[in-house]
Design a protein around this nucleic acid. Structure first.
Length: 390
DNA sequence: CGCACCGGGTTCTGCCATCTGC
DNA sequence: GCAGATGGCAGAACCCGGTGCG
């Protein structure tokens, strides 16, 4: 039970609802019963007076504030975020709390959810139940949904349009994405599902257009490939994606087919970057590589074989490169095996030190050892130490 | 077995601006 | 004119292991 329920005397109707549990059908029959308790005690007269007096359109609902405080909601934060919610005469904080608790959320999680997205308390039980079921089409357990809600309350509550959510799921499936894709998509970028279907369609159409423009033969396949490679793409603006594609094309002087291959491969990820950032990273890369004696063509090859290099910020990239070079690795070796840049500078530094101790010869053995999992690296080091001890 | 190649998994919300509908 | 709905933005890598080949 929730703290505020101690203080409140539920009306008979609500008591009935609470006892009935969570059967959607039964709750539906009680639809007309006010879901909010405290606010119903607020005299209606007060509101009608407001229309003709100079008082603010609607004063803050005091009993709502009391309820939220009892729930442990950070009222100050909530008020700052969505002040309008506090002036509503009827809200459903109790229903929401009951609902979420029934799904396995703890009071702290519920408080945190409401603090960060107060409008959640304006959703009716029917709405919540329906939306939850739609999410359950994708998730196997309630616990998974609770964890997403706790992570990003806005993704679940921002839209009141369950029809739109339904259409989104249907649309994504129609693209050829299977349930596993949807699961990853909803886990990773839940906002995708509260976009309007129109917006999602717009991005997909844009991707298909790009494909055709670049001489691709299968636009649907291309769009699907980009989405499954980059799960965030549907929460980006087409403007951002378009500008990034243009910038990639011009700065690398890519042919249509090179660009097409890049975009549906590992290049899909870098479309996420803000336009500024992509340019900044590219300029830094170009500058740094020139300093190290590389040709323009080397840079192009490097980006095509390892697009994620453009994801790395100037400072990180430069220090990573410097650290490798200091450790006795040549720039040509990096150009050949750019995946070593995948690993953190700390990781690389540590490995270089260990390898130096056993006198590892990069000229002879190459640098692949740096691009391996920790488990494999440790195993390899074990052998190398044993060897050097002999 | 040892190694290189390669693809995959994780990760990303919380705020502000703008429209829309009552 | 208000609150709700929706769009858009900044931020900024790292790690693991299956598989197939010699």
């Amino acid at each position: 039970m929730y703290p505020f329920s101690v203080k409140m005397v539920p009306s008979p109707g609500v008591k009935v609802i609470l006892c009935l549990g969570r059967s959607l059908m039964l709750q539906r029959s009680f639809r007309l019963i006010p879901v909010q308790l405290a606010s119903t005690s607020l005299p209606r007269k007060l509101c009608s007076v407001n229309t003709e007096s100079q008082l603010p359109a609607n004063p803050e609902n005091e009993s709502l504030v009391v309820n939220l405080n009892l729930m442990g909601v950070d009222v100050k934060m909530a008020r700052k975020r969505q002040p309008g919610v506090f002036r509503k005469v009827s809200t459903n904080e109790k229903g929401l709390a009951e609902f979420l608790q029934g799904k396995g959320a703890c009071p702290q999680e519920i408080a945190s959810i409401v603090s960060r997205y107060p409008r959640a308390i304006t959703r009716s039980i029917e709405h919540l139940e329906q939306r939850w079921q739609l999410w359950r089409n994708v998730f196997k357990t309630d616990a998974e949904i609770v964890s997403i809600l706790h992570r990003s309350p806005e993704s679940f509550f921002r839209s009141s349009d369950n029809k739109n959510l339904e259409k989104n799921i249907a649309f994504l499936i129609s693209l050829g994405l299977n349930i596993k894709h949807l699961h990853r998509l909803l886990t990773t970028a839940p906002r995708t599902f509260s976009n309007s279907v129109g917006l999602n369609k717009q991005m997909v159409e844009f991707l298909k257009d790009i494909c055709v423009e670049l001489g691709g033969k299968n636009p649907e396949q291309f769009a699907k490939a980009v989405i499954s490679k980059n799960l965030y793409i549907l929460i980006r603006s087409t403007k951002r994606v378009k500008t990034n594609i243009e910038n990639l094309r011009t700065s690398l002087k890519l042919s249509d087919s090179e660009l097409l291959t890049l975009l549906q491969g590992h290049g899909a990820d870098i479309l996420d970057l803000s336009n500024e950032y992509l340019i900044k990273n590219f300029n830094n890369l170009q500058q740094k590589m020139a300093l190290l004696g590389c040709e323009k063509n080397d840079i192009k090859k490097l980006v095509i074989s390892y697009p994620m290099i453009l994801y790395i910020g100037p400072e990180t990239l430069n220090s990573k490169l410097d650290c490798l070079l200091k450790g006795g690795i040549t720039i040509n070796q990096i150009l050949e095996k750019p995946k070593v840049l995948d690993y953190s500078t700390e990781n690389i530094t540590g490995r270089l030190e260990e390898l130096q101790k056993v006198g590892y010869d990069f000229k002879k053995h190459g640098i692949n050892i740096l691009d391996s999992s920790k488990k494999r690296f440790v195993a390899k080091m074990g052998k190398l130490t044993a060897l050097s001890d002999d």
